[in-house]
Amino acid sequence: MVTAGGDDGEPWTSRLLGLFPTARPPVPALDTAGDRDVLADRALAGIADLFACYLLVELPALYLLDALAGGTLVTAAVAPALSVAALVPLYVTYSFGFEWRYSRTPGKVWRELTTVTGDGDPCTLRASAVRNLLRYVDLLGVPPLVVGVVSAVRSPTGRRLGDRLAGTVVVRTR
C-alpha cells in the first residue's frame, strides 16, 4: 500500500523534518575523504541548500520588498542582479550557521555528508567561518565556481581552498 509519504509509509512531513541536522554529530567516515562520488554529492547538497535559501528566505523577502516598494521591484531591470547579490551572502551565512552548529547543512544531511576537522572532530566556529568566507573565492572564474571546483578536484582528499585553510574535510557519515 502506498501512502502520501511513499512506499515506506512515512509521511512526507517526517521526511522533510528528517533533513534538519541534529545536535548530536554523526560518526564521520574519514576514509571517504578522497572518494570522487563525495564531490558529486557535495555539489548536489550545495544545490539543494542554495534552493532552500532561495525558496524559504530570499523569495519571501523579495516578495515583501516588492510589496513595500509598490510593485516596482519585480518589474525593474535590477531585480535579477539584486536577487543574485542577496543570495550569495545569504547562502554563505546559512552554510556557516549550520556547519558551525551541526557540522552539516540540510543538503549534506540529505546526501549523508558531514564537515569535520582533519582528525574527525566536529566543525568549529573558526573552521566554519574560514571555510565559508572562502566560498567567495570559490565563486571566482569564468564561469563562476571554477576556483572551487578545480581546487576540490585536484585535491586527493577533495578539499577546496576553504577546507584547506580551515583544516576541514567533507566526508560521508556512518
Rank of each mutant, 00 (worst) to 15 (best):
L125G: 08
S151H: 03
R126E: 13
S128A: 15
S151L: 02
G148C: 04
V147Y: 01
T124A: 01
V169P: 06
G141N: 09
R154W: 01
S155G: 06
A152D: 01
A152P: 06
P144N: 13
A129S: 07
L161A: 14
R160M: 07
G148F: 08
R135F: 07
T168D: 06
D119M: 01
D121W: 07
G120W: 07
P143M: 10
A166C: 04
D138K: 13
P122N: 00
N132H: 14
R154S: 08
V137S: 03
R164F: 12
A166R: 04
R126L: 10
G158C: 03
P144G: 14
L125Q: 08
V147R: 07
P143V: 08
P122K: 01
S128L: 05
S151Q: 02
V149T: 15
L134Y: 14
L133K: 02
P144C: 12
V153E: 11
A166Y: 04
V130N: 03
R131G: 14
V137D: 04
L134Q: 14
V137C: 03
L125P: 00
D119A: 09
D119T: 11
T124N: 02
V150D: 00
G162A: 07
A127T: 13
S128V: 05
V149L: 15
T157S: 11
L125N: 00
P143W: 09
V153F: 11
D138F: 11
T168A: 05
R131S: 14
L161Y: 13
P143H: 09
G167C: 12
A127N: 08
R131I: 14
D163M: 12
S128K: 03
V137P: 03
L161E: 02
A152H: 07
V146D: 04
D163K: 09
Y136G: 07
V142C: 10
A127M: 11
R135G: 04
G120M: 03
V170C: 11
R160T: 09
C123D: 03
L145I: 07
R160C: 14
V169C: 05
R135A: 06
C123K: 01
L140D: 12
T168P: 05
V169Q: 05
V146K: 13
C123P: 01
D138Y: 12
P156S: 11
R154D: 00
V147L: 09
A166K: 03
Y136R: 00
G167N: 08
A166M: 04
V130K: 08
G141M: 05
R160V: 09
V169T: 14
G148Y: 02
D119W: 01
C123V: 01
V170F: 04
D121P: 01
V169R: 02
G120L: 00
L139K: 09
V169N: 01
V130C: 10
V147E: 00
V169L: 04
L140S: 09
D121E: 15
R159V: 03
D121C: 10
L133D: 05
T157F: 00
A166T: 06
N132G: 11
V150I: 10
V170A: 06
V150E: 00
P143E: 07
A127I: 13
V137T: 13
L165Y: 14
R154T: 09
G162D: 10
L145P: 00
G141R: 10
V147I: 12
C123T: 15
A127R: 10
S155H: 12
G148P: 02
L145N: 10
G148D: 08
R126K: 05
R159M: 09
L125T: 09
R159A: 03
V147T: 06
P156V: 02
G148A: 06
V142Y: 12
A127H: 08
